[in-house]
Write a protein that binds this DNA or RNA. Structure first.
Lengths: 352, 352
DNA sequence: TTGTATGCGTTATCAG
DNA sequence: CTGATAACGCATACAA
């Protein structure tokens, strides 16, 4: 016994009408008499008729679904973005198909091929950190597939993009540490091969300079695995605290680096902010839950998802080719928690 | 310029063959000559042909996609389950469509209707806590839609189910606290309207009894919002610690209750395990990262996803109706961290 | 071994 | 106002 749905044919047969009449009645066409319409609509309601989206897709050559590719849905930032995407997509009658690259460019390509074999109308993508070859994206884009990049964008491809104001977020976070009296501020950042890495590092440096501090390369640690590998973070911390002039605060430039720092500091028996200042990018509720005194830079993840989807739907539904591609930059938000504890800290003299 | 894919027609025209010949060649039919096959396959490869899954779905009356409904993908447990689902589904050529109920039974119903309007071949579901009316599930099931429930299962519907061994997980966790010397062990648990709540509470009680302790209702706190609402947890903690005979340890019976307990304890200035013993269900990496000394009960989330998917594919692909529905129970796992700190704790005399 | 015709569910076009 | 027919891309029973 297979799951069988009701079709237009069933209605037509039951009512002694043709399928075209039923179809038109259901779509409320002007050329159908009110009586017939009423008859059809009532019967359709009664037997719980729903048009078959697959047949519609075949006919209309569009699936009314959009594909999303992110590295991990288990990452709070991305799950929040996805919620934003869903919200816009669903109100516009679109279905969302989520797939994960798990930071593997091979898996990314496989997903991409699956999604694009004519089954999605457009794509929203945050590329994997591993990806260096953007040819497939480019080819797809050149062949007319609407694509919107967000977060980890591909500079070389001309299409809509949505990012957070990474420079300002990093600048503000660093400034907050400076204003709280910290004198030697280190940063943990991702590879600068990604634009998000570049921008955040630039914001950190600019904040230091604007407050009369010279960036010190010894205080800048690049974490290749972006906080996913514990040993790497432990080593970075070891190096920082082995310096003759160690840092008194840390700016973590990404979600996983913030939680990774917390873990590594905890493993060294250090508390925040008693032993060291810490601020970082984070969209995880848990950093808030478990560390009520930790201030973070939050990305407007939900809004970024909404924005990306609006732009994508514009691309999908525009009749003529779009040429004026936009890059939307959304503001980050500083969540200052128990800020008095940081702010009452007096300028340190012992270290400077 | 719209995104246009290559079709069988294009190949047929280019090679001067009929569409059926091309179709058969592509499917490696025995009735096509090796030369023709080679010709077709090479050309198809060259122009990057991929069959249109929508047309296939219409023809075969199956979409080769399965629907998943969970409350939140932002929950580690569920994202791990989804990874397990994807892994099995993809290797079997199935696509996974994820949708979230956000613990709303209305949203759950909407998603269900969307997914089932002939676009998925089967469903994997963990019901929302809010859901009390299972009629739509039942109707769907009766009409032949393959469904597998996991985690939050619906007892009333006869189909495959996958759950963790909640009783044993709770029993082991409580026993671990007892063996570590704790004498008054409280529990925070979800509503017992869900089977997972019932089973975990029963495991907790059984462990106490088996070790000569009588369950004390004053030490059992039901959290209706399952840890999602901070105030509720704070109140539960207040009540527990206002008792004349307060607990010296807590068993948190769900993911969100574990992280919620940590937050609430932290807010009271209490540390684990220095001030109070704590163990709980948790699949979040962050509980590990931020609290290296916290032992947890981990559900085999990935494996549960795999198991559910295997069962679903069996249902989908079986020719005749299935009658012997199974309930697979997977073992939970205790992750004992820095266990020496708990185990060296001597039996308490001050409180007993 | 290959080609022709049909149908999956729907809508658009053309007749009536 | 309503009905017949073709088409979307593909697979297959049937014909050659």
């Amino acid at each position: 016994m297979k799951f069988e749905a009701v079709t237009i044919k069933d209605i037509a047969k039951a009512l002694g009408l043709s399928t075209s009449t039923v179809s038109r009645a259901l779509r409320d066409s002007y050329e159908i008499s009110p009586e017939t319409k009423k008859l059809v609509l009532e019967y359709a309601e009664k037997i719980n008729y729903h048009p078959n989206p697959i047949a519609l897709s075949l006919k209309e050559r569009r699936s009314r679904s959009i594909g999303v590719i992110v590295c991990e849905i288990a990452n709070s930032y991305f799950s929040q973005v996805i919620n934003g995407i869903e919200s816009i997509a669903n109100t516009n009658g679109y279905n969302v198909i989520i797939s994960q690259s798990h930071e593997s460019s091979v898996k990314e390509l496989v997903n991409l091929q699956y999604l694009t074999s004519r089954s999605v109308d457009g794509l929203i993508i945050s590329v994997s950190t591993e990806t260096t070859d953007f040819n497939f994206f480019r080819e797809l884009h050149d062949r007319g597939m609407p694509i919107v990049f967000f977060d980890r964008i591909v500079d070389e491809i001309q299409t809509h993009k949505v990012i957070a104001d990474n420079f300002k977020g990093a600048y503000d976070a660093t400034t907050h540490l400076i204003n709280s009296g910290y004198k030697r501020i280190a940063t943990l950042c991702n590879t600068v091969f990604l634009s998000i890495g570049k921008e955040r590092l630039a914001g950190y440096k600019a904040a230091l300079k604007d407050h009369g501090m010279e960036p010190d390369d010894a205080l800048i640690r690049y974490c290749q695995h972006g906080g996913m590998v514990a040993a790497e973070m432990d080593q970075a911390m070891n190096e920082l605290f082995s310096l003759t002039n160690p840092p008194d605060a840390i700016f973590a430039a990404a979600d996983k680096l913030t939680t990774g720092s917390l873990r590594a500091l905890c493993a060294r028996g250090m508390s925040v902010p008693e032993d060291i200042g810490l601020i970082g990018f984070s969209n995880s509720e848990l950093t808030e839950l478990l560390n009520p005194s930790l201030s973070v830079v939050r990305q407007p993840a939900f809004e970024m998802g909404e924005e990306a989807t609006s732009l994508l739907l514009e691309l999908i539904e525009s009749k003529r080719p779009v040429t004026d591609f936009q890059t939307r930059v959304l503001s980050t938000e500083m969540l200052l928690r128990s800020s008095t504890r940081l702010q009452k800290r007096s300028p340190k003299t012992s270290l400077s």
